[in-house]
């Protein structure tokens, strides 16, 4: 048996159907709660509530096991954005306020902001050209 076969055999197989159902249900619950929060507090406060909640749960060390259980269901909503910021800065806390937290807090979340801005810029440019035609 080759090494690769052994690795494949011993790597625990994740049940992709179960993962899908869990992601659907957990994402759905977040969407449904957002609807209630949004009606009570408005869309911006709704986002802030999720961001603060995810940040605190990350600090308590709970969010990593939540991600393990609920997969993409908690990553694709705004909670994932907050988690990526908080977990990156917590991880590099020991390297100091500037070279640790300052340099690394956007390590994961920066990609979302970067590609959001680049996509919006390109698409706004395309729209500008289309309007001229």
């Amino acid at each position: 048996m080759s090494y690769q076969e052994l690795v494949n055999k011993l790597t625990p197989k994740e049940n992709i159907y179960k993962n899908g159902v869990i992601a659907f249900l957990s994402g759905g619950v977040i969407g449904a709660i957002s609807e209630i929060l949004g009606r009570c507090f408005g869309p911006e406060m709704m986002l802030v509530i999720w961001i603060v909640l995810a940040g605190i749960l990350t600090g308590l060390g709970v969010f990593d096991s939540i991600v393990e259980h609920f997969k993409m269901g908690v990553i694709i909503p705004i909670t994932g954005f907050s988690h990526s910021l908080t977990s990156a800065s917590l991880e590099y806390k020991k390297e100091g306020l500037v070279t640790g937290i300052g340099a690394n807090c956007f390590k994961l979340a920066g990609s979302v902001i970067l590609y959001g801005i680049i996509s919006a810029t390109i698409l706004a440019g395309i729209r500008g050209v289309l309007c001229l035609l």
Binding site: N19, F24, G27, A32, E35, K71
Partner: peptide, 12 residues
Amino acid sequence: FIFTGLICLIAQ
């Protein structure tokens, strides 16, 4: 519920 769930399902 359905929309957010579907997006998360696609991501998964």
